[in-house]
Design a protein around this nucleic acid. Structure first.
Length: 106
DNA sequence: CCCCTGACGGGCG
DNA sequence: TCGCCCGCCAGGG
């Protein structure tokens, strides 16, 4: 446990197929190692790592805030490819698709 | 060392 | 429900 970005990467990797999570949820699960911003920042750094499904991580509104970093609508396509409905850069049925590491991960 | 910015979140009017 | 402001942590100029 590097107690750093690796923690975030590990949690993101644990996100089930067809499910999504939020920056704040991951940050809260790690326990305020920083803020939700740090999670997104780590995601940026993880861009080199193609093993990190960063497209499954969105903000609390279920909006694909980081879709620009994927290039065009790449993030949306990846999500739709997993059966997730995205409308206007926003995940539909987000509440049900939401995967909380604190509650569902033990 | 100081100031600004950022894939965010919560509070308030 | 929408919009504005403040707080958190780290990096860059």
């Amino acid at each position: 446990m590097k107690n750093s970005f690796d923690d975030i990467y590990e949690v993101v990797r644990l996100i089930p197929h067809g499910r999504v999570s939020s920056y704040g949820a991951i940050a809260g699960y790690l326990g305020g190692k920083g803020g939700a911003r740090m999670v997104g920042w780590a995601m940026n750094a993880s861009h080199n790592d193609d093993t990190i499904p960063a497209h499954r991580v969105v903000n609390r509104n279920g909006v694909l805030t980081g879709k620009a970093f994927f290039g065009g609508n790449r993030m949306q396509e990846l999500l739709e490819n997993e059966g997730i409905i995205v409308k206007n850069d926003k995940i539909q049925n987000f509440k049900e698709l939401f995967w909380s590491p604190t509650k569902e991960l033990l």
